[in-house]
Design a protein around this nucleic acid. Structure first.
Lengths: 356, 356
DNA sequence: GAGATTTTTGCAAACGTTCACACGAATTTC
DNA sequence: GAAATTCGTGTGAACGTTTGCAAAAATCTC
């Protein structure tokens, strides 16, 4: 036996043909059951396939010019439940349609992102799903020029008619959250921005500003702090807010992860949530409902977004001449326990600094 | 222009050959730069490749009998940071070695797991990484018979010399955790078991029992409650423990997720952690350090486990005659804030039932 | 029941590679 | 400097499919 008994042992269409006493192209026709095959013959072939345990060789199939049945999914990283939820949605849709999922993580390295895109477009995959892409400009043009089917998730500003996008109503979500805080009586609301290079960050910031403006409240630049969607930065931002001479009574973080950082900082400072300071997030990742107190946040239908993105792409694959679509999915304010009506004289830590 | 300009536009080895004025096999040699090619010729070919933007077609390459440069990764689901961390490790290793990662999620559907395995082994991938596999028996034999390279992560009982495994010292970790609680003075320690069908669950349970036995403590069946590694079940288990006439003073959950459920239940009951009840987990997923109070837990080097598993597999690919390896990685007790010395008269909720 | 039509089937070529083999050129050996 | 060796390059076949074309078989039409 050779060292690579594996490849040798694989059953091909020819083996099945011999077994069934037909030609290999008849077997092919049975496999792709689109063409006319006599029911009797089909049964015989099917039987032989079953007996021999035939499995189609995708490589050969896609080489011949067909589809590879592979969808590339490009993600920044996979260690958080935000991305996880979206992938879950994508996966369920792809699996249902017999597609394979090729995962590429960029770890926020810009060069990698566009390098992957070129490999993927060359035969590796039939289509591409880009989650939270950061330097879209670097490759979007070549995707469009090659007419390579793709869908951007959580990215907005694409004017090209070929590119499809899926995102949630970031502006509205931020507006709603801010408005909710205002209605609770908060007048000074700190905002922690997301990564500047992502459009959703800007949209959320704009929603925050709009809500303040609509309520006739001033926009205090001191209350807008840069962030990066990660927890440590949220922690730092909150500490900044708390050290202000006139600290905010509520903090709105551009995503849940940042909000968790805020909660850490607030609780560490001896203040209580929501009695002393209200905290609100964005995304509604799994953990939002699990922290104490439960985080009030703006829900993005993450899994659903993944599913829709996959659907859009698959639809596109079946009909390449369709124009790109832009789907916007509604956010929803999820009220839990991290927000309370504003009180007077808040922001001042209570005498007893309890540890939490 | 046709509807599928994409496939047509792809540059092949032949195009490069024509451009460089050499034969296509010379180009192939340059691409796989193992053979002797005159430096001058190589430069000319390289130049042509660059000019034309040539990218190798993996499908054709692997059809020819070579490697597909694809590794299949089979996971139960991708929505939690435990799996995420392992995938992260796998991915970093694969990316460094120019391998692609094909992701398959089983969502705990047993049939799917073995169905995937057959598709993967037939040409889709060069090797297979199985994370937390559940019904290994269903396909392990065929993997071994086909000599298909594979590594099981977090699974133990495989006696076959061909199969490689990576896992952590589950028994020891549980032993250490239990022992730690005992040293803190706890005598009644509740244990929440993991999924029965996973070996690690049994190992951890055994470690717990051994530590109790070694300390001369009785093993009270009432204090061992079935779980499934998920949060809601942890919550239920803790409620069970708390409702006991003589509740435990510490609860050890078979993984962090369950431990979070425990924390929810304990805090909901108005008890404090760690003052009234100590809680300890297993895994040290990202969130363990983020909850309040920080969860004391047994750390598994998850990312590292993923990396090692990938290394094992790749080593195997390069040298198919190597026997399977079994790597066991050390766990480590991470002490945070969820455990305290046992007190008398605990388990009785304080008068003031505070809200958390 | 013979020709026309339709359905079913087989053959051959192609997809883009790799690789064994062979052959000519360059280099070494004596 | 001729024979032997090594090096560099080209030719052809193969990997497992799909699919256009044509032949064979079955069915229909009168």
């Amino acid at each position: 036996m050779t060292t690579r008994g594996r490849k040798n042992s694989s059953i091909t269409i020819v083996d099945v043909a011999r077994e069934a006493g037909v030609s290999y192209s008849t077997v092919s026709r049975v496999v792709n059951d689109n063409s006319h095959v006599r029911p009797e013959t089909r049964a015989r072939v099917l039987n032989a396939m079953l007996r021999l345990g035939y499995v189609v060789n995708q490589q050969a199939r896609s080489l011949r010019g067909g589809r590879s049945q592979v969808i590339g999914v490009l993600v920044p990283d996979v260690g958080n439940t935000y991305i996880g939820a979206i992938i879950q949605g994508i996966d369920s849709e792809l699996a249902a349609r017999q597609y394979h999922l090729m995962l590429y993580t960029t770890h926020r390295r810009k060069t990698k992102e566009s390098a992957y895109v070129t490999t993927i477009t060359r035969g590796m995959a039939d289509g591409l799903l880009l989650l939270l892409p950061t330097n879209v400009e670097a490759y979007i043009e070549s995707l469009q020029k090659l007419q390579f089917p793709h869908v951007l998730v959580d990215y907005q500003h694409v004017e090209n008619a070929f590119t499809s996008t899926v995102q949630s109503t970031n502006w509205q979500g931020a507006y709603d959250a801010t408005r909710y805080l205002i209605e609770l009586g908060h007048r000074r609301i700190g905002y922690i921005v997301g990564q500047r290079e992502m459009q959703c960050s800007l949209d959320r910031l704009a929603g925050y500003r709009a809500a303040l403006a609509d309520a006739g409240l001033p926009i205090d630049p001191e209350l807008i702090y840069p962030g990066d969607f990660y927890r440590p930065q949220g922690y730092m931002a909150a500490n900044h807010f708390l050290s202000l001479p006139n600290p905010p009574t509520a903090i709105f973080a551009a995503n849940d992860l940042s909000a968790f950082g805020v909660m850490d900082a607030v609780l560490n400072s001896g203040r209580r949530i929501p009695e002393d300071i209200s905290v609100i997030g964005f995304d509604d990742i799994l953990e939002a409902g699990h922290v104490h107190p439960g985080l009030t946040t703006v829900r993005q239908p993450l899994e659903e977004m993944g599913r829709v993105a996959a659907q859009l792409l698959l639809k596109r694959l079946d009909n390449p001449d369709l124009p790109g679509e832009r789907v916007e999915m509604a956010t929803e304010l999820i009220v839990r326990d991290s927000c309370a009506p504003a009180r007077e004289g808040v922001g001042i830590p209570p005498e007893v600094s309890r540890r939490y």
